[in-house]
């Protein structure tokens, strides 16, 4: 698998660290809604097909990326920075 890091270019899977589902939303910092916390920490859609997920380019620029990938075929559709400002920062 090759991931096209927007900062470093296409790099091998071995350089990246998988950081899981990117569709979860963390409750507000101060939230005391245990159900919301449980959902955030433990529950995943785990789709068979298109999956939005985080990868960190750990062996490269270290930016976290949002990757859209098919979990059935491993085909990668899109790659972008997780943090919109990362491009500037990392450069």
């Amino acid at each position: 698998m090759l991931i096209d890091c927007p900062h470093c270019g296409p790099r091998d899977l071995a350089e990246f660290s998988y950081q899981g589902d990117a569709t979860r939303t963390r409750p507000d910092l101060a939230s005391t809604d245990t159900k919301a916390w449980l959902d955030y920490v433990y529950h995943r859609p785990n789709p068979a097909g298109r999956h939005r997920e985080f990868w960190q380019h750990a062996g490269g620029c270290r930016a976290h990326l949002v990757v859209e990938r098919d979990t059935l075929t491993h085909e990668i559709f899109t790659v972008s920075f997780a943090r919109k400002t990362s491009g500037g920062d990392a450069a």
């Binding site: 660290s17 950081q19 963390r26 985080f54 960190q56 750990a58 270290r62 930016a63 976290h64 997780a82 943090r83 919109k84 400002t85 990362s86």
Partner: peptide, 13 residues
């Protein structure tokens, strides 16, 4: 290190 980077990139950009 990875945990902190995750927090900054994803939780609190």
């Amino acid at each position: 290190m990875q945990h902190l980077e995750y927090c900054l990139d994803i939780l609190w950009p």
